Computed example of a mutant assay.
Amino acid sequence: MILVTGGAGFIGSHTCVALAQAGQPFLIFDNFSNSRRSVLDRLAQITGAPVPCVEGDVRDEALLARVLADHAITGVIHFAAFKAVGESVAQPLRYYDNNVAGTVALLRAMQAAGVRTLVFSSSATVYGDPASLPVREDFPTSATNPYGWSKLMMEQVLADVDASEPGQWRIARLRYFNPVGAHASGLIGEDPQDVPNNLAPYVAQVVAGWREALSVYGNDYPTSDGTGVRDYIHVCDLAEGHVAALRYLRAHPGLLTVNLGTGRPVSVLEMVRGFERASGRPVPYRIAPRRPGDVAACWADPSLAERLLGWRASRDLDSICTDAWRWQDGVARSLRG
Results as ranks from 00 to 15, higher is better:
Met1Cys: 09
Ala8Ser: 15
Ser13Gln: 01
Thr15His: 04
Ala20Trp: 01
Phe26Gln: 02
Ile28His: 04
Phe29Glu: 01
Asp30Asn: 01
Asn31Ile: 05
Thr47Arg: 01
Pro52Gly: 04
Val54Tyr: 06
Gly56Met: 08
Ala65Asn: 00
Arg66His: 08
Val67His: 00
Ala69Pro: 01
Asp70Arg: 09
Ile73Arg: 00
Val76His: 07
His78Asn: 14
Phe79Val: 10
Val85Thr: 15
Val89Pro: 06
Ala90Leu: 15
Leu93His: 13
Ala101Tyr: 12
Gly102Phe: 03
Gln111Gly: 09
Gln111Ser: 13
Ala112Trp: 11
Ala112Val: 14
Leu118Pro: 02
Val119Cys: 14
Gly128Ala: 05
Asp129Ile: 15
Val135Pro: 08
Arg136Val: 14
Leu152Asp: 01
Asp160Thr: 07
Gln168Asp: 05
Ile171Thr: 10
Leu174Pro: 10
Leu174Trp: 07
Arg175Tyr: 05
Tyr176Ile: 04
Gly186Gln: 06
Glu190Gly: 01
Asp194Glu: 15
Pro196Ala: 04
Val203Met: 04
Gln205Gly: 09
Val207Ile: 13
Ala208Gln: 00
Arg211Ile: 07
Leu214Ala: 00
Tyr217Leu: 02
Gly218Asn: 06
Asp225Ser: 10
Gly228Cys: 12
Ile233His: 01
Cys236Gly: 04
Asp237Thr: 10
Ala239Cys: 05
Gly241Leu: 00
Val243Leu: 02
Ala251Gly: 14
Pro253Phe: 08
Leu255Asp: 10
Thr257Tyr: 02
Asn259Tyr: 11
Thr262Leu: 06
Ser267Arg: 04
Leu269Ile: 13
Val272Ser: 08
Arg273Ile: 00
Phe275Cys: 08
Glu276Ile: 09
Arg277Ile: 13
Arg281Lys: 15
Tyr285Pro: 08
Tyr285Gly: 01
Arg286Phe: 12
Arg290Gln: 14
Pro292Asp: 12
Asp294Met: 14
Ala296Pro: 14
Trp299Asp: 08
Asp301Gln: 06
Glu306Trp: 06
Trp311Ser: 05
Ala313Asp: 06
Ala313Pro: 11
Arg315Cys: 07
Ala324Asn: 03
Trp327Glu: 01
Asp329Trp: 12
Leu335Ile: 09
Arg336Glu: 14
